[in-house]
Lab assay of single mutants.
Amino acid sequence: MSGNGNAAATAEENSPKMRVIRVGTRKSQLARIQTDSVVATLKASYPGLQFEIIAMSTTGDKILDTALSKIGEKSLFTKELEHALEKNEVDLVVHSLKDLPTVLPPGFTIGAICKRENPHDAVVFHPKFVGKTLETLPEKSVVGTSSLRRAAQLQRKFPHLEFRSIRGNLNTRLRKLDEQQEFSAIILATAGLQRMGWHNRVGQILHPEECMYAVGQGALGVEVRAKDQDILDLVGVLHDPETLLRCIAERAFLRHLEGGCSVPVAVHTAMKDGQLYLTGGVWSLDGSDSIQETMQATIHVPAQHEDGPEDDPQLVGITARNIPRGPQLAAQNLGISLANLLLSKGAKNILDVARQLNDAH
């Protein structure tokens, strides 16, 4: 009898209710805020589980004197976190989706994509230029951005401005803007500013005609071990179906173009009346040469937790077992079709030249 009692006690200790789920994140304040929001949602869904947040620095956090596009290494903000995932030191990792490459290392998958916040870019102005827009900034004003995508589009749109690289986390960039006289304004992701509670610093939100956004911008991705079915089931509740389908289309477009950090590629997606609209573009580094096109596809946005595919093969690095396969494939095909259209119009040449120029500098 006593033996059975011990077995029952052991089973209770090993039951999922007692389990601590370890969540990996970057150390920056924004990353911690984003991770806290994901953990809060998981806690609400699984009140019996405990969650421990483990923060670590990544290569991208450490190399702050070089433009991201020049470092010449993929997975700048993800490699150390993936290493911890691989060694079973954490069970899942919360990322900004735009930091996750469209091809993940073997053994990993994006197990959830959370509801997207505003994906557009924002302009934050130096205190002396508050009330201005990019259009009304004085001639030769210097605007800071760490992104080739932003610089290429904005140089084309605002030729009277000069664009220079600015690195560091959000706090560091804002301090550089406010305390030094080098920059009249800087460009940042609206979602990051909003998550930090800095709505009052948003001086201008850039519309798609001015600057399309990065693939996955404004959404959070939760990376897990691809074979860890328990954790895949656990994080599945975080999937937002519309965000998922938009981001599958965007990531398929980028992957098929073979774009990345070192080339200016941008997108804009919208879901309306059962249609998914995808606009994508590529630019030369100075913005003088560009190709942009829009395509659409009829896609039914499923309700969360309709029964999805059981075999769960990944699409552009994403596993969404609780979302039907048909809409996911339709979104992926839309991204591939748009990429093929741009490639047929000469996108590869623009991107190759951009890559060579970026590598040469």
Results as ranks from 00 to 15, higher is better:
residue 23 V to G: 01
residue 24 G to K: 01
residue 24 G to I: 04
residue 24 G to A: 09
residue 24 G to N: 01
residue 25 T to I: 05
residue 30 L to W: 01
residue 32 R to W: 09
residue 32 R to M: 12
residue 33 I to N: 11
residue 40 A to G: 12
residue 40 A to P: 03
residue 45 S to D: 12
residue 46 Y to C: 09
residue 49 L to G: 12
residue 49 L to F: 05
residue 52 E to M: 01
residue 53 I to S: 08
residue 56 M to G: 06
residue 56 M to I: 14
residue 58 T to H: 01
residue 59 T to I: 06
residue 60 G to D: 04
residue 64 L to S: 06
residue 64 L to Q: 08
residue 65 D to Q: 07
residue 66 T to R: 09
residue 69 S to W: 09
residue 70 K to E: 09
residue 70 K to W: 09
residue 72 G to P: 13
residue 72 G to H: 09
residue 73 E to K: 10
residue 78 T to C: 14
residue 82 E to T: 08
residue 82 E to M: 01
residue 82 E to K: 06
residue 92 L to H: 05
residue 96 S to I: 01
residue 101 P to E: 08
residue 106 P to C: 14
residue 114 C to L: 10
residue 115 K to A: 07
residue 121 D to M: 01
residue 124 V to P: 03
residue 128 K to M: 15
residue 129 F to M: 15
residue 130 V to S: 04
residue 132 K to L: 10
residue 135 E to D: 12
residue 140 K to Y: 09
residue 140 K to R: 11
residue 142 V to G: 09
residue 147 S to C: 05
residue 153 Q to S: 08
residue 155 Q to Y: 09
residue 157 K to H: 13
residue 158 F to N: 12
residue 161 L to M: 12
residue 161 L to A: 05
residue 162 E to W: 03
residue 162 E to D: 11
residue 170 L to S: 07
residue 173 R to L: 03
residue 173 R to C: 01
residue 175 R to L: 09
residue 175 R to G: 10
residue 176 K to V: 11
residue 177 L to S: 01
residue 180 Q to S: 11
residue 183 F to L: 14
residue 186 I to G: 05
residue 191 A to R: 01
residue 191 A to E: 01
residue 192 G to R: 01
residue 196 M to F: 14
residue 196 M to N: 09
residue 196 M to T: 06
residue 201 R to H: 01
residue 208 P to G: 13
residue 208 P to F: 14
residue 212 M to I: 15
residue 214 A to E: 05
residue 214 A to T: 08
residue 215 V to I: 04
residue 216 G to V: 01
residue 217 Q to R: 01
residue 225 R to S: 08
residue 228 D to Y: 01
residue 240 D to W: 01
residue 244 L to K: 01
residue 251 R to W: 10
residue 251 R to Q: 01
residue 252 A to P: 01
residue 253 F to E: 01
residue 254 L to Y: 01
residue 255 R to W: 12
residue 263 V to H: 03
residue 265 V to D: 01
residue 269 T to S: 04
residue 271 M to Q: 09
residue 272 K to S: 14
residue 272 K to R: 10
residue 273 D to I: 06
residue 281 G to K: 01
residue 282 V to T: 07
residue 283 W to N: 12
residue 290 S to Y: 12
residue 296 Q to L: 13
residue 300 H to N: 12
residue 308 G to M: 04
residue 309 P to Y: 01
residue 312 D to M: 08
residue 314 Q to A: 04
residue 315 L to S: 15
residue 321 R to A: 12
residue 323 I to T: 08
residue 324 P to A: 07
residue 324 P to R: 13
residue 330 A to N: 13
residue 332 Q to Y: 13
residue 332 Q to W: 13
residue 334 L to C: 13
residue 334 L to K: 01
residue 336 I to R: 15
residue 339 A to R: 04
residue 351 L to W: 05
residue 353 V to T: 15
residue 358 N to P: 15
